[in-house]
């Protein structure tokens, strides 16, 4: 980290052009990882700064997965730091539902809210692969870069995550007495 050259004005300009357009994606991914709008802003901001620090190592490959991978690492470090401060990881992990601001989702329909809640309730491993695929619309290859996994593992994780979400939704909707006909 310390051997990274200090970014100059030209580097910052290039960074602005290449990485800044992906700030929405960085925040969106962080939002689903942390399930908390305040923490998500911290993670996204810290990730942007790290990305700038390491920008000299960016070789003009695909910018979005490169940035999202940094977002993910930043989030993992934050979670670890919380663990070191004796906040058990489950506490960070188990705040499902918390992440969904009920007022914010009031604009969206009841059904959308349930889907968001079902997604938020999934374990991180399942949640993030679904977010990268369905919300950030990344190909398997790009997801593999973000998660640092072989494509085959991405595929099997995605399949499992979809099954989990479908099961969660079935439970959710059935409890409310309007099940999905085809699920």
């Amino acid at each position: 980290m310390s051997d990274a050259p200090k970014p100059d004005a030209g580097t910052v300009d290039r960074f602005r052009t290449v990485m800044l357009p992906h700030l929405d994606a960085a925040y969106g991914y962080a939002r689903w990882l942390t399930r908390d709008p305040v923490q998500a802003q911290d993670v996204a901001q810290e990730a942007m700064l790290r990305a700038l620090r390491y920008f000299h190592a960016f070789r003009g490959e695909d910018a979005k997965p490169w940035l999202l991978r940094i977002v993910r690492n930043t989030w993992l470090d934050l979670a670890r730091r919380h663990a070191a401060e004796k906040v058990p990881l489950e506490e960070i992990e188990d705040r499902a539902g918390d992440g969904l601001d009920p007022e914010q989702s009031a604009l969206a329909g009841d059904r959308r809210r349930q889907i968001a809640a079902a997604l938020a309730a999934l374990p991180a491993e399942a949640r993030e692969v679904l977010v990268l695929r369905e919300i950030e619309d990344l190909s398997y290859k790009r997801i593999a870069v973000v998660l640092d996994l072989p494509i085959g593992t991405v595929m099997s994780r995605l399949a499992r995550a979809r099954e989990k979400l479908a099961a969660g939704l079935r439970g959710h909707l059935e409890r409310r007495g309007h099940g999905l006909p085809d699920m």
Binding site: D24, G28, A108, I115, A116, L119, E134, R162, D182
Partner: peptide, 14 residues
């Protein structure tokens, strides 16, 4: 269906 439902979630910009 799962894919369609997730893609229907409102965007959450920075």
């Amino acid at each position: 269906m799962v894919s369609g439902l997730l893609r229907d979630l409102p965007a959450d910009p920075a």
